[in-house]
Design a protein around this nucleic acid. Sequence first.
DNA 1: ATGGTAGCGATGCTA
Length: 272
Amino acid sequence: MRLATWNVNSLRSRLERVVEWLVTADVDAVALQETKVADDKFPVMAFEAAGYEVAYHGLNQWNGVAVVSRVGLRDVQVGFPGVPPFGDPPVAEARAMGATVGPADGPGVRLWSLYVPNGRTVEDPHYAYKLRWLEALREAATGWAAAAPEQPLALVGDWNIAPTDEDVWDPSVFTGTHVTPAERAALAAFTDAGFADVVLPLTGPGVFSYWDYQQLAFPKKRGMRIDLVLGNEAFASRVTGARVDREQRKPKASTTGQGPSDHAPVVVELDL
DNA sequence: ATGGTAGCGATGCTA
C-alpha cells in the first residue's frame, strides 16, 4: 500500500493537481491538511470520479483536514477526545480526523490526518495552544495504541515542528516557533509513547517538505522538514520505503493559476 | 525602497 500526507494549502485552488497526482503517483490513500474548505463545499465528485472515497472535516475557510482512499475507508472519527478549544467563542478547530484505510479483510491502517497549530510566535496565545493541543493528542494517541497494539496506527500531517536543527535550512535564522525546546519536547513525547518517525531513516536528514512562498525559498533550498509520519510499531515494522515528492512544490510548466502548495507530499510504502 | 507570497473572501486574517 502506498500512503501519503500533504498540506495542500487550499484544496479547491489545487484540486486538479491533487487528483492528478494521486492517480499518476499511484497513491492508495492520502491524508490532506489545510484544505481550507467547509464540508458543504468539499469537492467530493472530483475524487469519486478518480475512484477514491473521501472523508473530510472543515468548519470554514481555515484549517480543514481530509482522508482520501481507493482501498477502503471506514470508522471515520472527527477530532479527538480532549482536544483543546480555541478562539472567541472557543471551538475545536478542524485540525484532526481519523479513518481506517485498507481492505476490510485485513487490519488496514488507522490513519490520522493532523494539522498542528502553527504557534505564530512564542509570545502569542497560539503558541500555548499549540503545546496544549499536542499534549492532548499524545494522550489520546497513547490510548489508541494501548487499546489495539496490533493495529497499524499512523499519525501523519503538518506538525509545524522541525524535530532537529538538521530539519531547517539554516538553524541560525530560526529564533521563533517550530524549533523551540518545548515544541521539540512535545514531539519527543510521541517517541516516548512508542511512535517513530518512519521517514527519516529511509530518506536521511535534510529532506525538507515545506518551503515558504516568499524570497524564492524553494529554488534556494531554504526549507524545513515539518510534515511527519509517525507510526506505532505495528505500522513502522511494515514500512518499506519513503520519499518526498519535490516535483509537487514546482509550478506547472507554461501555465498560470497552477501554482504549488508551499508543502510537498510525503509518501510512504507499506507492506500490508 | 521599511516591501517581499499566497488563499479566502470581501478586509484583514492566516500561514
